[in-house]
Design a protein around this nucleic acid. Structure first.
Lengths: 214, 214
DNA sequence: AGCCTAATTCAACGTCCGTTGAAAGGCAAA
DNA sequence: TTTGCCTTTCAACGGACGTTGAATTAGGCT
């Protein structure tokens, strides 16, 4: 019966994730979420303290797993390079390809989550606080790895280049349909192969060009 | 007296821009906007048809001027290169530096607008439609210019690289405070010189690396 | 002065919001 | 079968929402 409780809790989180990703925190009502989840409104407040608490729970649910997968990808790179230094390409790929893997394994689950992260990252209201809270340890580890791959580059260069990466990455995984419109159908937001072929290489080239010994 | 009408209309638009930029469309009420503007609620519906119409008006007000400034910057580049082809660096700079100029000339005016654009660009709800409506002619002209600077590159490569540029650019100008937190104060969201030194070069390097003759 | 129109205020409409307390249902241990 | 706890439903609260129609003010024209 604790398992029955957890089942509905997950149903509520799924519904909330889907709707928050599409319309943002304020654009969704608790009643809409519970209608989507097929449960009574009051049940939301039995399982969560408030609408804001539910929002945080949606974010937290997948953050740990996603961070684990990316840490593991960087572990593998460092395992391969115990004596020499990995290239930035390898490091950036360890940062991005886990996202593509998650999406390949379970598209419906992760698409909404990535869209939500993109909105949060670009919101003055949430961006500073929430991204820091959920992702900073992982991001710092990646930046440290890049620093070793591009020795003597300045901290400011590294942080700014990561910021550009962050913007490109979150927009790309948000799948807003923008590139589909702009390109008149030549490109497809959800074409993960197309992204994998270009995004890591694009970003790595940018890092290489900016982060040089001074 | 038509001028008096236009004054308050601009006051309403200013208040709406500021609040929409911070909290998004759904996160703001018409009453909040009119309190900020120092006017009666009903006046919003005298000057605009609906909350959504006011939102569109906020976007439209600066879009034309911003597009003009960027078109002029590209005109200048093409004027300089009537015989030879400009470099991608020059073209990307013509795309980004107008934003820095606007921000330098009138920071309070443009900061909120850029933050709003960033949220829209990353929203599945608005991103596809609104960005297309307001910015596609300009963007297509820039992509055409880049195509001439990097001959024989594929359309897909060009559109994807522009997409990465778009994500990096909008997040950077959103000034969410994220990079300030991540870097423990080493970097400053609002340091436009730091951005100008790095963003165009970073992006140009990415284009160069991806968009090659096939 | 009086008039016409544009600009602004006032008061309210029906609806939906986030949230809650109390009651009902369901399952396990006794 | 009863007891007790966990889960779910029901009904409602005060307040705020987007929006509107009618009344009021203010300014330029005759």
């Amino acid at each position: 019966m604790a398992s029955r409780s957890n089942e509905t809790k997950q149903r509520i989180l799924n519904a909330a994730e889907k709707l928050f990703a599409r319309e943002g925190f304020a654009g969704v009502t608790v009643r809409q979420i519970m209608r989507e989840a097929g449960a009574d409104v009051a049940l939301a407040y039995y399982h969560f303290d408030s609408k804001r608490d539910l929002f945080d729970a949606v974010l937290m649910r997948r953050a740990d797993y996603m961070n684990d997968v990316r840490h593991a990808a960087l572990d593998a790179v460092e395992q391969r390079h115990q004596d020499d230094a990995p290239t930035i390409e390898e490091i950036i790929e360890a940062f991005t390809t886990p996202l593509l893997q998650l999406l390949a394994e379970d598209p419906d689950t992760w698409r909404d989550y990535f869209a939500l992260i993109a909105q949060i990252n670009n919101s003055p209201q949430w961006g500073g606080e929430l991204m820091t809270r959920f992702f900073d340890p992982l991001v710092r580890r990646f930046i440290d790895a890049i620093r070793r791959a591009l020795p003597d580059s300045s901290d400011a260069d590294l942080f700014w280049c990561y910021h550009f990466l962050s913007g490109a990455l979150t927009l790309t995984f948000a799948e807003t349909g923008r590139i589909d419109n702009l390109s008149n159908g030549v490109c497809d937001s959800s074409d993960m192969d197309a992204i994998n072929e270009r995004l890591p290489a694009f970003i790595a080239a940018g890092f290489r060009h900016i982060c040089k010994p001074q």
